[in-house]
């Protein structure tokens, strides 16, 4: 059994494709340096896509302006059921954060699922390094159980050597 975390790779952001975001509403608040997308939020870049109920983009207050997007994005918070899909993998959770600098996506919730074909990992926290695509699922801590929580992993025989 792994040490409560298992690794897969596949969820990746490619640096040279445009990012398209769709939603029902977008509110840009200059003073707070945030842009809030609400309602059927759908973010696509190449083959990677993310769906959520709400996405809040936090801009660095470095003089640029949120409305014009001239200031840089610091981090993104994603809420209301997050679904992330790439060519080979899908991941779901209740909420998520994406840190622009470290390019780390974290999905959390009481049931975070990372699946690749028939292989499924279920835990409480998924950490993905979007630059390399390395994904790590951490188990859920049940009550005062010591040590890392358990990760439910189901691997279908014969699929290990597929990627």
């Amino acid at each position: 059994q792994t040490d409560g975390a298992s690794r897969m790779s596949g969820l990746k952001l490619s640096g040279n494709l445009p990012i398209q975001i769709e939603s029902d509403k977008l509110e840009v608040r200059q003073n707070d340096n945030i842009a809030i997308f609400t309602g059927n939020v759908n973010v696509v870049q190449g083959k990677t896509a993310m769906k959520a109920g709400k996405m809040t983009v936090h801009y660095a207050n470095d003089g640029g302006s949120a409305a014009t997007g001239s200031s840089n994005i610091e981090r993104i918070e994603i809420d209301d059921k997050v679904f992330v899909k790439s060519e080979t993998q899908t991941a779901t959770g209740d909420r998520g954060t994406f840190d622009m600098k470290s390019e780390v996506l974290v999905l959390s919730g009481n049931e975070v699922v990372l699946s690749e074909g028939p292989n499924v990992l279920v835990g409480c926290k998924l950490t993905v390094q979007m630059g390399t695509g390395l994904a790590e699922v951490e188990g859920c801590k049940k009550g005062n159980q010591p040590g890392p929580g358990r990760v439910m992993m189901s691997l279908t025989p014969g699929s290990q050597n597929s990627n």
């Binding site: 640096g15 975001i21 997308f37």
Partner: peptide
């Protein structure tokens, strides 16, 4: 001009070079 509220079929496109400068700046 402090608050912009867009509604009904909001579509945003961020071009790669814009995304790049964000990553470089970071």
């Amino acid at each position: 001009g402090k608050v912009f509220v867009f509604e009904n079929k909001v579509r945003v496109t961020i071009e790669p070079q814009r995304y790049q400068t964000m990553r470089q700046d970071n």
